[in-house]
Design a protein around this nucleic acid. Structure first.
Lengths: 121, 121
DNA sequence: TGCACATATGAACAACTATTCATATATATG
DNA sequence: CATATATATGAATAGTTGTTCATATGTGCA
């Protein structure tokens, strides 16, 4: 997994060693950066973004989300699993109906930062 | 592209029509949500996250980034193109060396929000 | 108990993505 | 001008991902 320590893959020579060292010293470990990329990956899909936007307005059941987005129930269910595993949404069961909602207020913030970036262009 | 208006794909029945309507009414248009997903997609890759973290510390040239991450120069160059097209990084040329830096302070914020989400678990 | 409905899930497939290799372009230097 | 170096880019490929289909599980109700 982490071949950066054993083998040299890079095919070019450093130009500013001081900058490379400085940046290397403050770089978080690989696992943390990997987790961060994984988090953003979850946001990086239109269907999931739509689901998250919907849930930021109201708790919703799987069926209603499928109707709202006009998609197959199973497609929604698969995506909700991804969101669940990333701990971005939580759920509660009421009989045979499962209601999903955002797990964390952080999510809304990330969302809004994203929006204000694209607005800004 | 937008089949949601013409064809019905969904295979299940609405349960709470009031909620569906309410959420539908505040939903941004498809294009905006698509752009948002595209933005996060760019953050959703370990290599690009590492590049962005590096650039959040210091302007860097392509070569030095490749050395820092121990990756092929062309791999870095391809990823920098993705970041450039998303207007997340900018660059300046000095002779044959090209220096990249973050285009926007927003980027750091999105980054930090992401970090505080994964820290929180 | 049997049927209808809400949700979940595994397998298959098509579409997309990141890296590599080979090579092109541009600039500095002998 | 010839060479070395920094960067960019097109094509190929391996790996990943989102949706669909078929089906399983679980709950409520007649």
């Amino acid at each position: 997994m982490d071949k950066s320590k054993s083998t040299t893959i890079c095919d070019c020579h450093p130009i500013h060693n001081d900058i490379i060292e400085k940046v290397k010293n403050v770089m978080p470990n690989d696992e943390k950066l990997y987790d961060l990329a994984e988090l953003f990956k979850v946001f990086g899909d239109t269907t999931r973004i739509k689901i998250l936007h919907a849930l930021s307005e109201s708790e919703m059941c799987v069926c209603d989300i499928a109707v709202l987005l006009n998609m197959k129930q199973s497609a929604i269910s698969h995506q909700l699993r991804v969101l669940r595993q990333a701990r971005i949404v939580k759920f509660r069961k009421e009989g045979k109906i499962v209601y999903y909602s955002l797990d964390d207020e952080h999510i809304k913030n990330i969302f809004e930062q994203g929006f204000s970036h694209i607005e800004h262009k």
